[in-house]
Structures are given as C-alpha cells and as structure tokens.
Design a binder for these strands. Structure first.
Lengths: 120, 120
DNA sequence: CGGAATCCACGGCGATACTG
DNA sequence: CAGTATCGCCGTGGATTCCG
C-alpha cells in the first residue's frame, strides 16, 4: 500500500494544509511549473530541466504527483524506454496559482536583490 | 572532502523555487491563511487556531515569515505581554493564491472521499 | 533511457522544561 | 502571555550503484 499524503481529519477543514502537502514538496512546484510550460516532458528532459534534482528524488516526486493524480505518466514499452509526463486535468487546475506564485516570486527576487537580478 | 554539487544560480530563478521556500514550510501556508482571514491574531490565538503546532515551531515560523516580510509583528510592552501578528502588503499579495489553493484543496478532499473508497 | 535500491547526512520538527 | 532553550527522533533528500 502506497503511503500518499495522509491528512489528519481534524485539520481537513483548512484545505490549505491538504494542498500544501500535495504540492509543497521541495520540487513539486517546479516540476508542475515546467510541465505546465512544456505540456509534456520525458524523464530525461525533466532531469535536464531540473539538474539539481537527483534521479531518486525526481522519480520519487513524480510518483507522488502521479499518485495524487496531478500528473500523467505515459510509458512506451520500447527500446530504448520512453516515458512521458504531463499534467492531468487536476494538475492543470493548479497552473494559474503556480503562475501567480511564479510572478510573485520573481517580483520578490527583483525587489530584494537590487543587484544581480539575472532574469528567469 | 567531497565537494557538494553547487547549484548554478541560473537554474532556479524561475520564482517558483523562491516562492515555495518562502511559504512552503509545514505551517506557513496555514498561518498566512488564518492571518488573511482574521486580519490580526495574537500569539495565543494563533496557537489555539493551530493546535498541532508547538510553541517552538510557531515562534520559529513566525520569525521566518517576519524575516521574509510577509507578516508584521506588533509588540506591546505591557503586562501581561501582548503581541499581534498581521499580514504585510507583500503577504496580502499571496492571499489570492492561498485562497484558491484552499478551495482547490477542499474540492480535492471532497472528490477523494467520494471516489475510491479504498479504506485506509 | 528510465528508473530501482541502498546507504547515510542533515535538519525539520516534536516534546519538554524554563523565563520575563 | 509570549516566548526560549535543549535534546533527539526520523523523515527528507543526497550520492552512488545497479538493472530491464
């Protein structure tokens, strides 16, 4: 049995708690963000897009996202193997907010570091 | 001594990374959410609103949020002591995001509960 | 190519006790 | 009332190796 994000009943009322558990990991936001931008990405492409994520974490995070029905994993039984990841409908519902967050983050970065504001 | 792979600064400037670091803690989202609802809350009120947070974590999280200029700490030098927390302007900019996240989370909870009744 | 498996370091976080 | 301080667990995530 897979241990996916479990939610203590007493806190469910918040919804924020729940949402953060599903997208609040260290990398989930970025993965969702890039999937939202590129529509569909292969494992290797994700790995290259997010070079600081180890294969373990990438796989693990993708599994959790898939488990939570936020992304779709499409596997081709070929040689060489090929796996494509894309957002599910539920995942797409998050994009406006992640985009909002992205803009907010960029704005904060520029505001706080007047210096080397290397563009996104 | 092994050199820990440094993260090129050019990578995670996507803003999402930054934003998640700011609000991605275990409790930050909920604290911001409740501050957004109640406008202003005292330390004890926050503690009662979020009973599962220890004083240590509450204080620590509030400090980080204050450090990040997301909330404002207003202290009254009285006896007994009194401290009020509220959202800063920057913090308020996040509310649309958190609010929608809240709605999304609630919706997911409902969908999930009527969905696969795989009792856990 | 796209993982899975293992080992391990770190720090987030909880529990508890104390303070101004 | 509103914190601080200390100890320590354990989950998160990193590095590395192996597999279909």
């Amino acid at each position: 049995m897979k241990k996916k994000s479990e939610i203590p009943e007493c806190i469910q009322k918040c919804g924020v708690e729940y949402a953060f558990k599903r997208i609040g990991g260290k990398y989930k936001g970025r993965i969702l963000w890039h999937l939202g931008l590129q529509k569909v990405l292969r494992y290797g492409e994700l790995s290259r897009t997010l070079p600081d994520i180890t294969t373990k974490m990438l796989t693990q995070t993708l599994r959790e996202l898939e488990d939570d029905k936020l992304i779709i994993r499409k596997m081709y039984h070929e040689v060489p193997p090929k796996v494509e990841y894309s957002l599910s409908d539920t995942g797409w519902e998050l994009m406006p907010f992640i985009e909002h967050l992205h803009n907010w983050g960029k704005k904060q970065l520029e505001t706080e570091s007047v210096g080397p504001a290397a563009g996104s």
